[in-house]
């Protein structure tokens, strides 16, 4: 449960950045993670960041495969 949203200015700037989608997704999730939720223990951020890195590398692979299939 979280009530304090991330400042929209930060999210708008992230959206406007000319960087690959998987990098945006990674940044978006680590920001959400840092903003946190009250029903979690204070996270071990390095472990969580590692997991998010793996998640978005996988996303990058999937995007490459889909792009290859389209071509």
């Amino acid at each position: 449960m979280r009530d304090r949203q991330i400042n929209q200015m930060i999210l708008d700037k992230l959206e406007a950045k000319d960087i690959p989608m998987h990098v945006k997704g990674f940044i978006g999730e680590i920001l959400q993670h840092e903003n946190g939720g009250i029903d979690q223990e204070r996270p071990q951020y390095t472990r969580t960041y590692d997991n998010l890195l793996n998640k978005f590398m996988l996303q990058q692979d999937e995007a490459r495969i889909n792009h290859g299939e389209t071509e």
Binding site: L14, I19, H22, V23, F26, I27, L53, F56, M57, Q60
Partner: peptide, 11 residues
């Protein structure tokens, strides 16, 4: 992994 971290940090 290095590339993703570096790019994210820069952004």
């Amino acid at each position: 992994r290095l590339g993703l971290c570096t790019e994210a940090l820069q952004a």
